[in-house]
Write a protein that binds this DNA or RNA. Sequence first.
RNA 1: GCCGGGAUGGCGGAAUUGGCAGACGCAGUGGACUCAAAAUCCACCGGAUCGGAAGAUUCUUGCGGGUUCGACUCCCGCUCCCGGCACCA
Length: 862
Amino acid sequence: MKDRYESKDIEPAVQAEWEAAGSFAAREDAAKPKYYCLCMFPYPSGRLHMGHVRNYTIGDVLARYMRMQGYNVLQPMGWDAFGLPAENAAIENNVPPAKWTRDNIRHMKGQLKSLGFAIDWSRELATCDADYYRWNQWLFLRMLERGIAYKTTGTVNWDPVDQTVLANEQVIDGRGWRTGALVEKREIPMYYLRITQYAEELLAALDRLPDWPDRVRTMQANWIGRSEGVNLAFPYDIAGNRGELKVFTTRADTIMGVTFVAVAAEHPLAELAAGRDAKLRAFVDECRRGSIMEADLATMEKKGVATGLSVRHPITGAEVPVWVGNYVLMAYGEGAVMGVPGHDERDFAFAKKYGLPILPVIDVAGKPYSTDAWQPWYAEYGVCVHSGPYDGLDFNAATNAIAKDLEAKGLGRKQVVWRLRDWGISRQRYWGCPIPIIHCPTCGDVPVPDDQLPVRLPEDLVPDGSGNPLAKSKAFLECRCPKCGAAARRETDTMDTFVDSSWYFFRFASAGNDRAMVDGRAAYWLPVDQYIGGIEHAILHLLYSRFWTRVMRDCGLTDLDEPFQRLLTQGMVLNEIWFRKPATGRIAYYNPAEIEAGGEGDARKGVLKSDGQPVEYGGIGTMSKSRKNGVDPQDLVERYGADTARLFTMSNVPPEHTFEWSDEGAEGAFRFLKRLWKIVHAHVEGGPAQELDVAALDGPQRDMRRQVHQALVKVGDDIGRRRTFNTAIAATMELLNALGRFADSSPAGRAVMQEALDFMVLVLSPVIPHAAQAMWRGLGHATLVVDERWPQHDPAALVQETVEIVVQVNGRLRARIAVAAGADEAIAREAALADPGVAKFVAGQPVRKLIYVPGKLVNVVV
RNA sequence: GCCGGGAUGGCGGAAUUGGCAGACGCAGUGGACUCAAAAUCCACCGGAUCGGAAGAUUCUUGCGGGUUCGACUCCCGCUCCCGGCACCA
């Protein structure tokens, strides 16, 4: 064993040993318990960032730990390879997205390998490979057959200059990020997946996921958003147009307080009125330019214009004015809402602004009501007042009575609605999975027959930022109708990339099968036992995967309802954001490493090192390619080695917390590794240790051995149960400090040390697998650590004769006393009261009460 | 705006079921080694008051209340920060 720790000598050699032994190739083996450990696969953005390192190190530690527990472990890796960044890079560098993506994959795969993750690379997949995405297409066709996939219109951001659809991310302050043009809304035909059909099941099943974090289950439940309410209709007869304006409300009890209704700009009534009113026309046009993002909609100034039209109140028959509101979304519900200014904060503000009447119709436990200013209790449940026949009824009674009356008139009924909306999957983009549809002038939209799958995406196109290049590619576009054989055109929309990531975990377990989407191997490995990924995926990706799994189940492809047994949501890795915002065009971001921060003593003032000019501080945010605030882990690996990079990312912070990046800290991890190496080396230099004879140990040796076994128990619990890797590592650091002080070179002392170092190397091996292997050899073992079992602790070693307990007087710490382990209350009481530090504060006062927590504390209440 | 989460020394964090606040690490200070530096090793390291020191007392877990023998932990009301909001992935 060398006297200096040199990661550059150790790591490639150990990786070569794993490779030669085929250590990480997973084979289905019904005789062994399986463990499928999966990290969310990366988008091949170009280089690994610290978020990846954190994610994959967590997964790798768990995979290696479970393997040491005797499980047959599968840890695969792949690439979420379709997406927008490849198109942006293509425009910038004039290379096809395919080339850019595959180059990135090659580079990042090398980076992952250098970090020594225990990955079964034989199962690698990339979603941009036709072998993979053909099954997206295949299942999409099954969904069409079952009515789960359907076509309707949807709203998109439209850049009128580039004549192209923009992603939300590409809209900045209402303008296209490349052109700066005001973005418009457009209604275009799109394919949707009927996830709402599974809403009830997706909600109910959350209760059967005890090993998911509560916060994720809560977020999903709220996202699905079951609410009970009443669907009702306001009839109208306007210039010969008879109809009903439909709205949904969860507060039918306030119906007698309705003083207006508001419709979306795209609503037929708005269109009708705009035709004869220039002011309204202008407003409707303005609304069309608004954002399609919910966050914008919820925070923008609520504006409205009266249409001059009115509808009839479904209960009273009174005339109710119709307004157009910029906050009403056509795509949401019926595109209309009823306005109850008395009991809805938004309606209250709207009524104040436009001088509409405010009618209080609910009394909340006698709390005062004034139309002067909104008070939070106005929106609470109460008892109906000024509501004619409903006076005195509470929320439930009023809702029931009103629903009954509406039903009798044929103007409404109770209904359960979901916040969840169907999943629109059409993207007007090139770098994605083609939707397998052919448009025939005579037969209409014709699904591509199974035997013509996959519909291959051409890989040689270079987008230019205007429109979808597929729509300009004759070779792709022109085809024959599968039904009638006439000349036809292919659908040029591709699928949302969330489709790709909704089932890749099945495919890892059916790698290489070119005849079926999944096979029997998936039945062996699935469900994923432990899934690990960023908290930012808590809703969409996980919900889509749960949905997709159920569709596969209903198509007979799996028996599972849920794909992920246990979920760990790692916190994000954050870093500072620095940018410059030019008068026109897109914002320029700079990596924090390029910034000199702290000018004028203010950490939020900075200049760009290269030109000395000021840059703006954008706060702390997630590391992302678009904001250029990533940290390159390669620097860390080259400087300290993979083991230090791994150790560092697992130290200090629990995995679920956000991690604010700082350049300091890696040194500490590196120092620990070097100290561990040194103590192992020093021990090995002393020659082979004798066999451990527990009965022959003296007091200090027994104490040392107790600490070793206590640490072993703690590390196992922290990794196996709590997943708090930071405290596990802290425990090993504490133990190393204790071992450093344990200078006992007697034969028995060296035997204790040998056991301690063997354990230390084994329990740290999931985190620092290369160094652990080298030290394991040094300690005299011929085997590969990856094939070793987790060490068993000796219960006898943990036994303590006396324990220290804390004595409080009136809840304040006054003394520590030693009592025999297992002492009863009488003994503890006597010992506590006898202590001078305690007696001082008791000072002869009678003891009113005494609380004794065995082995921990005595609290004397006087 | 809505949904979810967070806040503990100079910094990251620990305290697992309501029971010793500050484990472990970083930074810092002092010392040893060295011609010197780096590296390494040793000691100290939340604030205040008293004390030569050992130590003692007291305050302290974002802010304001509450429950309890006892609250970082539970409850109520705030503030600020982070994630998500359906076309970034």
